[in-house]
């Protein structure tokens, strides 16, 4: 498989009024890879995706898909892209068959081929026996499966998954991951936005971490992890009044720490076990009341905290919407 760039985003900026939802993003997705876009709510993930899909016009910058300018060739681009969003949008009042047939028609699949495709899609989704049942009666997992085959009905080259597993239970989430991997093995390029670091870790070949509309880092998972530093991450939670004492103790053992509220975090580069024990003894000696102390290898979580200065936020309502509303009122 030729590893050419399937998607190329260059200096993309998208403003809503005064608000810069996407601030100069450049990235490229290679053909056949699973590319993750990771970021908290309101980071600009969905806005970026919407520009790629042609739903939004970029304020500046360009998006090319398979060497075609996304906004100059909307018809061809749209045939190449499939989208599955975080809200399940199968129509509950329609049967599984009608749902699929409708989208096959919307995508201008040749009339004669529609029944064949719908049948195959239902088989892929393991919903053949539910073809004529209203989708509204399906379980969450079934709906998501139907949604996935629906977004593939036009046989796209690129599948964009916008937080595909949000709200799914663990079993269904793992099943969906398997399906995503299967599709990828068939040669479909996949772009995945997610808030779940675990999901990005499990699926993505490469990923970009974005926050406040900017790319903070881009690379393979191990490349990103190594950015945090070698060695182990030490995390101590103490009373807020004692964080400086804890910080001093870390320094004594050659660990540069940083404080976030009541959390002291440092990176132990040498002899992790020994240093950990020494620090833990010293804390006890100085009678610092430790609520929790732990050490682990860097995770994407740590990468994230290091790069964005915060844990994944889970605010109610994305600020993407808030930004749009602002833009709306501004007129």
């Amino acid at each position: 498989m030729a590893k050419q760039n399937m998607i190329e985003i260059k200096n993309l900026v998208k403003r809503f009024g005064d608000f810069k939802a996407v601030d100069d993003i450049s990235l490229s997705v290679k053909e056949g890879e699973i590319f993750g876009i990771l970021g908290p709510n309101g980071a600009g993930k969905t806005t970026t995706i919407n520009v790629v899909l042609g739903l939004l016009k970029p304020t500046s910058g360009s998006v090319k898909i398979d060497d075609l300018d996304a906004h100059a060739n909307p018809e061809r681009i749209k045939q190449m892209l499939g989208l599955m969003t975080q809200e399940t949008v199968v129509e509950g009042d329609l049967t599984a068959w009608d749902n699929l047939e409708l989208f096959a028609e919307l995508y201008h699949v040749p009339k004669g081929e529609i029944p064949k495709r719908v049948k195959r899609a239902l088989e892929d989704a393991e919903l053949t026996d539910k073809a004529y049942v209203r989708a509204g009666t399906f379980s969450g997992g079934m709906k998501r499966r139907l949604e996935l085959v629906k977004s593939m009905i036009q046989e796209p080259k690129v599948l964009i998954l916008d937080e595909p597993t949000t709200g799914l239970d663990v079993q269904n989430r793992h099943k969906l991951w398997e399906r995503i991997k299967e599709l990828n093995q068939k040669g479909i390029t996949i772009i995945l936005t997610t808030q779940y670091l675990e999901e990005a870790d499990a699926l993505c070949d490469r990923l970009a971490i974005i926050d406040h509309g900017k790319i903070k880092a881009i690379g393979t998972v191990s490349e990103l992890k190594s950015k945090v530093g070698k060695g182990n991450i030490l995390e101590i939670i103490v009373k807020q009044s004692e964080t400086n004492d804890a910080l001093r103790i870390l320094k004594k053992f050659g660990v540069n720490g940083s404080v976030k509220v009541d959390r002291v975090v440092g990176n132990i580069e040498k002899e992790p076990t020994k240093t950990f024990n020494k620090i833990s003894n010293e804390l006890e000696k100085q009678k610092i009341s430790v609520l929790s102390i732990s050490m682990h290898l860097p995770t994407l979580d740590d990468v994230f905290i290091t790069l964005t200065g915060s844990k994944i936020r889970d605010e109610a309502g994305g600020s993407d919407d808030a930004a749009r509303m602002r833009a709306w009122r501004g007129r």
Partner: peptide, 13 residues
Amino acid sequence: QLGNLKAFLITPI
């Protein structure tokens, strides 16, 4: 509200 409109708009209709 249900996201159907977005689903229509990403199709080439």
